[in-house]
Design a binder for these strands. Structure first.
Lengths: 335, 335
DNA sequence: CTGAAAGCGCTAACAT
DNA sequence: ATGTTAGCGCTTTCAG
């Protein structure tokens, strides 16, 4: 590895002269600057980032901790985070918590020792269910900024980027009501997550606000050890009155669609479905699933922006919560 | 941030004593070791990784460069890489090339300056199509190890982890032949990638080896600016004789299945489909897609193992190519 | 058993 | 305009 020392020796100048020359310092003569730069280029000199970081107490690296990279939402968020971070001259170190509280603690510990300037994270399911957030607050107390996205907690005082989960589910439900649906169920595999709870609330509120709607709200929650497919197939087989589905997680909407098609239910004539899957590979179905688009790219981008803002001016930047507007995208499974 | 210096001052010993004590050096008295450790724990001391890395010229970090994280195969590989790396005490820094040659060069440059000990990567489409691999060889010449997985190049001399693409496609095609299929087409959106070429070869060879097969091989390649869905729908509509499909990329198999169902083609009675999609969310279809499983987790794991081996003993470890066996998983779209 | 000192590669305040 | 020096936090050799 080529170092400043090498260059200095070759050129018979001091290390600091080389350093200054490479930074275009006006303390150095144009002539020297040129010579230094020429040699640096020739030898393909690149400053050792470790040394720079150590010296400056700044790594230009963001730690990203996501619960599950096989979940398309998080993969997409990571994509956006990586893209925006790169654009702003930051690297990312990625850790996957795998929804485990302990892994989240480890990652946070591991990276908070000078490896990163701050964190962008979405909290693990275990963490959220138990609402054990001491480990996160400990990092904040060390004055390392964190931005939470999507899955957040009221017990953590930091920057947050979320979507309007309540409003999005409210709008989705209202849309089905406006189609004249009389038997709208909610499907959720994320009952225990903050976003799941909020979306359920939106659904309840929408039904509640509609004075002409007579049915009881029907909230189908599916646990992790259940077969989603069997459960949904049974549901649609038994309860023929269902004419609207609001699926508030990643996959149940698509599965419901597949099962409806299999059971020869006419979608969207006799059954409307709205999912939360975002536009992705899942949508090679025919008809295509209508969804609430979560603007995942915007979420990632906004998270990076918020964190970098904080990094640039730690003291004065207030902790804010940014809400990214979700949007109903009507495709083939709604009228 | 708590440093060795802090601990030393508090305890009225030297910095080196503290350092040695924390490493259980037998130069230090048990008593001192205990006192040091107690205080370290109390103050939640964590060694600054940057300083350790700088000192040791070793970062315990692996740079991972993947072409596209929204591709489920790469997301899964990344998952496995992260998991195995963590297990072995390594962090990963992730960059996404987005299939761009220039971005790949940037990432490599950026991280090769002391930030990582080595790389695991799958090369970008642009890089592979043009076979411009100088940037990668430049890194290897700096004595920074690289392990390539899935998409590799003969012009790069380094560790490689691949699947037996030729054999896998050969077996898949042979299976359809054994079902008695008489009109088997190949579907590919990755015609220009090394893996795509090998899989196509396997398909050709299998047909060629079967003396009773009379049709010409029919290799449908779909370019990036085409609508895959329209193309496949048109294909299945026009050519009713097709009774077998080998889809050698991530998505065309699933799309073919959807279109076949839409067109009321009986799968697998009148048409068999084998994809390369790996078991994933795509398979909420009914029937489920039969696929060639690429053992993606094994690929990721093997890549990490190979790289760490090389890191541990740079000089003596030979560059090998490890082939992970692919496996035909028969589900619902084959007889 | 403990400590002083050098050095990883870099930056920057402070000479000259 | 250039050089000297100190120091970021750590490890490690060498002296005591």
């Amino acid at each position: 590895m080529v170092t400043l020392k090498h260059l200095a020796e070759q050129l018979n100048v001091s290390i600091s002269t080389v350093s200054k020359a490479l930074h275009d310092s006006n303390e150095i003569s144009p002539d020297t600057i040129e010579r230094v730069k020429a040699l640096a280029k020739f030898l393909n000199y690149k400053p050792n980032q470790l040394a720079v970081s150590l010296k400056n107490s700044k790594t230009n690296t963001i730690g990203v901790i996501i619960p599950n990279i096989l979940n398309h939402f998080f993969a997409k968020a990571l994509f956006a985070i990586e893209q925006e971070a790169t654009k702003q001259g930051y690297n990312i170190i990625t850790c996957v918590s795998n929804e485990k509280h302990s892994k989240e603690i480890n990652s946070l510990q591991l990276l908070s020792n000078g490896s990163v300037d701050g964190f962008i994270m979405s909290i693990a399911e275990e963490t959220q269910v138990a609402n054990k957030v001491d480990h996160i607050n400990a990092i904040l107390n060390q004055n390392i900024p964190i931005v939470l996205f999507d899955r957040v907690s009221d017990d953590i005082d930091c920057g947050k980027v979320i979507i309007d989960d309540f409003g999005a589910a409210y709008e989705a439900t209202k849309y089905l009501l406006s189609e004249g649906r009389k038997n709208i169920i909610l499907l959720s595999r994320i009952d225990e997550l903050s976003v799941g709870k909020l979306r359920a609330k939106g659904y309840f509120k929408a039904l509640d606000d509609d004075t002409t709607y007579n049915e009881e709200p029907n909230c189908i929650t599916i646990s992790h050890d259940e077969s989603i497919e069997e459960r949904i197939e049974a549901l649609l087989t038994k309860n023929k009155k269902i004419d609207g589905i609001v699926a508030v997680d990643n996959t149940t909407g698509v599965i419901a669609l597949h099962k409806a098609l299999k059971l020869n239910i006419n979608v969207p004539k006799d059954l409307s479905i709205i999912g939360f899957s975002d536009e992705n590979v899942l949508q090679f179905t025919d008809p295509k699933l209508s969804t609430v688009s979560q603007h995942t790219l915007d979420i990632g981008k906004a998270s990076v922006e918020m964190l970098i803002n904080k990094l640039k001016d730690k003291s004065s930047v207030q902790n804010t919560t940014k809400t990214i507007k979700a949007k109903l995208i009507l495709r083939g499974t709604t009228k």
